[in-house]
Design a protein around this nucleic acid. Structure first.
Lengths: 253, 253
DNA sequence: GTCAAGTGTCTCAGATACGAGACGGAACCC
DNA sequence: GGGTTCCGTCTCGTATCTGAGACACTTGAC
């Protein structure tokens, strides 16, 4: 277990500022992180010097600084998966005429790293940077289905690990396993109205050379506009895009 | 002066990983940061736990993690300037048929936060996340021209503060001041071939309610394709976009 | 105008983190 | 197979950081 408390506190402070919709006063930061006020001021001073935090003196609040943006840009520049995936998602949007996105698994959540919107389609909740519970999303289910059984159990050790949305969603490991069996049988995941009522998604996993899921591709469409035949066609396009991306990153396709 | 060495070291490590094109071995990190190996491993352990760094075990290297991306996304979500500016730059690209970008001043450098590429135009060096010396760029000159004289002097205290590119660029405060006078007289900045040979840019500053420059808007075009009349027209569109953005953020226009 | 609450800075002693260096294992080279 | 280099983990004593709390200033309520 690493023990570098000042580094951990600094990182926690940045994460706190990222979680909120806007800048925070120092007293709120101290309270939410349960840190002494003087410690918080020391950390803020360092983070300001380094450009990760800026002080809005008139509002007496602290917000993220441009170095936070620079870090995110550096991650995007260095991440081979996103660079390779972007043109493939652009093409998927063209052929499907629906919004497409790429997500990665981060613990029990999915994290959206690419969102390509189709012309004339509304923006969805699955915007870049958003996190959602994996068990509730098509992309999450697609990736969980590609994980070894023991790893799924490790991620969901008890009933508390499950969340619901709009009063719907799996609530136990047994239910989740059953759903993942269905995903494997179909070779794609379906989510109907769990994330956004009246919208559905189909998703397929992207796996690396060991077969481990590194991302999932999905398309989202208005549920009423798409019959079973149309949905199978969208699923075919999504699984083909995911397989193509898997091949391009040298994965086991 | 803040003194929280572990926090400073952690942040320096993240910045180092951001500066490089890809992941680094721990030994390189120790060498470039001039830190003991055990200290570096402690910091890497914390940053991994928090998701800011990932360990590529097969390559024995460390790279930025998805929380770096999440931080950058949070900054973009919270930054009102970029949200307001993006549709204006999209429209500027449509009317001008050239690439447009938005930059902010960060010390003596400009930092590109939006890049909108025109259809059929090549990507340029001014990509999102890139930094360039302010004195060499149209956006930098536009913002410097809107700063009080004392602040320009503080940013460029001596000849060492100036850099050149392709053997061209101002090398003294006197030369810089003369150029900034010209920028103010024209109400826009011009850069010809300093950033990318054979490409030129025109830029105008976006100022806040105090008249302080918070960003600059620019258009970049192939120098040979644009005669004086055409360039004046592009400059008119750029200064209008910058004024529009200034008004929308409640600036002094 | 007065009082309370909040912000930001500063000091310094006791608690604790830092980092030198040892160790085991892996990878590479011959 | 042996030797070298590098990686990653671990220990513990000394140097140094953390944070309680005082202080000055600003803002807001009455």
């Amino acid at each position: 277990m690493p023990n570098v408390p000042a580094a951990t506190q600094a990182i926690s402070l940045l994460k706190l500022l990222a979680r909120h919709a806007g800048p925070l006063p120092a007293a709120s930061i101290a309270r939410e992180l349960d840190l002494p006020r003087s410690t918080v001021y020391h950390l803020l001073a360092v983070l300001r010097d380094e450009g990760f935090v800026m002080h809005l003196a008139e509002e007496r609040r602290y917000g993220l600084g441009v170095e936070a943006f620079a870090l995110g840009s550096a991650y995007s520049r260095q991440a081979p998966l996103q660079r390779v995936a972007r043109p493939l998602l652009t093409r998927l949007v063209e052929t499907s005429s629906h919004n497409a996105h790429l997500a990665i698994l981060h613990g029990r959540e999915v994290f959206y790293v690419i969102e390509e919107r189709a012309p004339g389609r509304p923006p969805l909740v699955t915007d870049v940077g958003v996190r959602l519970p994996a068990s509730l999303t098509a992309t999450g289910l697609a990736m969980l289905a590609a994980l070894p059984s023991a790893q799924v159990r490790a991620l969901f050790p008890n009933r508390d690990a499950f969340v619901q949305r709009h009063d719907v969603g799996v609530t136990s490991l047994t239910q989740l396993r059953a759903e993942l069996i269905r995903v494997r049988q179909r070779t794609y995941a379906i989510e109907e109205g769990l994330v956004t009522p009246e919208f559905s998604s189909v998703a397929a996993a992207v796996v690396d050379h060991t077969g481990h899921p590194v991302a999932a591709v999905a398309v989202t469409y208005p549920a009423d506009d798409v019959d079973d035949d149309r949905r199978r066609e969208l699923a075919r396009q999504v699984t083909r895009t995911a397989a193509d991306l898997t091949r391009r990153i040298g994965g086991r396709a």
